[in-house]
Nucleic acid binder design. Sequence first.
DNA 1: CCCTAAAGTTAGCGTTGCTTACATATGTAA
DNA 2: TTACATATGTAAGCAACGCTAACTTTAGGG
Lengths: 209, 209
Amino acid sequence: MESNPKSYHHGDLREGLLEAIRSLIERDGPDKFRIAEACRIAGVSTAAPYKHFSDRDEMLRGVALRGMMRLRDAMRVAVEAYPPRDPRRVAGLGKAYVDFARSEPGIFRLMFGLAESHHSDDALRRVSDASEALVERVVAEHIGADPGSDDVRLRAYALWCFVHGHCFLTLDGKVDPHKPGVEDRLLALVGDRMLPAWEGADRNPSGAA
Amino acid sequence: MESNPKSYHHGDLREGLLEAIRSLIERDGPDKFRIAEACRIAGVSTAAPYKHFSDRDEMLRGVALRGMMRLRDAMRVAVEAYPPRDPRRVAGLGKAYVDFARSEPGIFRLMFGLAESHHSDDALRRVSDASEALVERVVAEHIGADPGSDDVRLRAYALWCFVHGHCFLTLDGKVDPHKPGVEDRLLALVGDRMLPAWEGADRNPSGAA
DNA sequence: CCCTAAAGTTAGCGTTGCTTACATATGTAA
DNA sequence: TTACATATGTAAGCAACGCTAACTTTAGGG
């Protein structure tokens, strides 16, 4: 079962293909990559992938899933770098998200470009939900509230919206990459205005519009 | 030059194809739509499109451009619904953005999924820049600052990040559509915490981290 | 030591984007 | 009107790609 290049059997063709496809998507985009080229990289014939994947979409979902896992892991590592209630914990979480989008823009686009797969594929949803739960946990600790409360979920979602939007806009070139100060000032704006404004405020669910 | 269905010439095949492709993208997605089907809808042969577009990508860019224009126009209409410095102006701007993403999710994804086209296609960038300028103008009026200042641009960008992220996350089903109260509370959170916190604060660019 | 199943290969089919060569309509000028 | 150039359509077909069918090779268990 090892990955011997000489043997008739690849050893772990599924993982080998996923890695090949990942690199090709990063180079050409999700709808441009060719299966035949991934086969050539993995060193197999063009029919081999169909022993492991039903079709092209399943390959894409496999690559997206592994990307979701890497993002989730990166967020976990970033969170554990600082103790609870440390402001750098929230900032680090956002930074990990942005760093991932910057380092793997093609996969990031793929992950959030699969329109219907999020609802149908259970594995994708599970990993995505884990990341969401992590954000909620960190926000809950930060503002000292119950992790499951609607208030925390809403604020975590708001933070996620902000970071997620920033990722897509930077990927689309809406912010100049040759102006490194912008991102720092942006983080400072959110960190100084948004997060402190939350602390101890609106703890009661007042129905004010 | 009229669009007579009986005549040999279509009349305005370019626009007819763009509309047909738009509807197909909305139904099947940007990478799934087939040119032949758009031709059937427009009532021409499969070779006809290539008299107006060089290739598939140019058709997609054409559809994306018209989408950008619709979004820009919707934002303009929303802005003009309220006088300057009215808080509903900023809220309406964001709402127009979200409404567009909800009503045309396929085109919205297409518009922000074209990775390199934003840099290469001048027409796309021009319309996108116009929308960006509009956001900056409204934010500048709202906080009573100079439209071209770095401060305004940063705050406008922060607002855009937030709204843009919310659009993508709702499209990906990250927020339950059967909970209409969520969006209102989200807008209230941003409106009550974020925007008022901006007014008259941090007008001086202090270097505090 | 076979026998089964897993995992690979080769050949080829159908679809699809796109091109080439040809046909038809439109606008302009003699 | 007629002649011509150009724009815009059709028909036929090529090449590439996803995918399948039938066959071959290896791994592993009784």
